[in-house]
Amino acid sequence: MSKVTVTFIVNGKEVTLKVGPKERLIDTLREQLKLTGTKEGCGIGECGACTVILDGKAVSSCLILTGQIGGSEVLTIEGLEVDGKLDSLQKAFIDCHAIQCGFCTPGMLMSAKALLIHNPHPNREEIKTALEGNLCRCTGYEQIIEAIESVAK
């Protein structure tokens, strides 16, 4: 199985990497780029923990082979903080206690961020739809929705 060379942008920086034919985007982010903020939960696109933003859209990084994304732009949880300042969504998650164990949080934040990129003032239903692919077993979702609402107002 020979490796392929791929060039893409991660959090604003261009990277050129050799990736295996079975290497998924989540593997490349965590193992080659050491961006371990993105979590792997189910590995089959059902839990949303591995959500990143690919060319402006929320996607499951466990369902994409890195070989597929040449020329694309990836935003991970590490890219939300700019110059030491947390993104307003990150602050809102803290303020609204939208975190408990924290495992789902990066994925939740990236789904929320993707929503706000296209729709800066979503209603509650739109927020719920954006989060329907993200599971949280601690918070019961209410605080997460409130946190996003507080930024979307």
Binding site: P21, R24, I44, G45, C62, L63, I64, L65, G70
Partner: peptide, 30 residues
């Protein structure tokens, strides 16, 4: 053939018996 991958990558991950035997994966998603 690989396009969106939302089904194929699940089958690859699970090494599903439903996957046919193949030697090449052709990505057409771009």
């Amino acid at each position: 053939i690989l396009a969106g991958g939302t089904d194929l990558l699940v089958n690859l991950y699970k090494e599903s018996p439903r996957l046919p035997d193949f030697d090449y994966l052709l990505d057409i998603s771009n």
